[in-house]
């Protein structure tokens, strides 16, 4: 208890003056910064990068955008594990708490409803466009998924009544859809070409687009579920599932 109060007083007096601990800490941080800064200062003028290697293999990757090629072809393994990390984050969030949105049936604000009605279809369109655009310009699964997640957050904030009626299973399936497609394609390629995620060259573009579409849906649902902040209630017959699966229910 004493230490806690000390910390409280310390941070309350922070603006007046730093105590001894904070001065030492400031000194250490400045030392670290100076050292790292000298390292950055002495970095070579033209560091050897992988730009040439990527450009060399670009035409075999199936996509025209170098970042998408790196993400889903050359370093596809990283992205696969990253999608798994997102899934783990949702599992962690679901094990912590129930979704904490208000339980009472409430009329949605008409202004908010109007905004949702206008914006959400547009956001789905933009997300689909970004996923498709990822093959030749800036864009891809993460950007599209982020837009989908933002649409989900918008609907959760508005507390749409129809969100309460969505059953739990589509949400779970949607959450694992991207990872499942990714693993499925990886295994398919393993049987076909002998390499995990070694796409056959002529179908690489389509396989990447398939993975991206699945991952965008899963990422959007993941982000919306993380915003809802807890697992949905499966058992209760009424007032259930209001805080989840918004994208799934509304997706055309």
């Amino acid at each position: 208890m004493r230490t806690e109060e000390k910390i409280i007083t310390r941070s309350r007096n922070r603006h007046k003056r730093l105590d001894a601990f904070q001065r030492i800490l400031l000194l250490l941080v400045i030392c670290l910064t100076t050292l790292l800064g000298s390292i950055i200062w002495t970095m070579p003028e033209n560091p050897p990068g992988l730009a040439d290697a990527v450009a060399l293999m670009q035409e075999h990757s199936g996509v025209k955008s170098p970042v998408t090629a790196v993400l889903l072809n050359f370093r596809g393994y990283d992205t696969l594990l990253e999608v798994m990390v997102l899934l783990l984050a949702v599992i962690g969030a679901w094990s912590l708490a129930k979704a904490h949105f208000p339980q009472q049936e409430r009329e949605a604000n008409p202004v908010q409803m109007g905004v949702v009605r206008l914006l959400v279809p547009l956001m789905f369109l933009v997300a689909a466009y970004l996923v498709w655009q990822g093959s030749h310009l800036a864009g891809g699964a993460f950007q599209g998924g982020a837009i989908l997640g933002a649409a989900g957050v918008l609907m959760l904030v508005t507390e749409l009544p129809c969100l309460r009626a969505i059953p739990a299973h589509p949400l779970r399936i949607g959450l694992v859809l991207g990872p499942l497609i990714f693993v499925g394609v990886a295994l398919f390629c393993l049987f076909l070409t002998g390499d995990l995620l070694g796409y056959p060259e002529e179908t690489a573009g389509w396989l990447i687009l398939l993975i991206e579409a699945g991952c965008a849906i899963s990422i959007g649902l993941t982000l919306a579920s993380l915003f809802a902040g807890g697992h949905p209630e499966d058992e209760r017959p009424k007032n259930q599932e209001q805080a989840k699966g918004p994208c799934k229910g509304e997706r055309p």
Binding site: S65, L137, A138, Q143, I147, A150, L223, L226, F227, G229
Partner: peptide, 22 residues
């Protein structure tokens, strides 16, 4: 880095903010 910019605008500004606010 337009890819990173798109992701940052959607995630860093659009999603992290609501997460913190809630």
């Amino acid at each position: 880095a337009p890819d990173v910019a798109l992701a940052e605008a959607a995630l860093g500004a659009g999603l992290t903010g609501p997460l913190f606010l809630s």
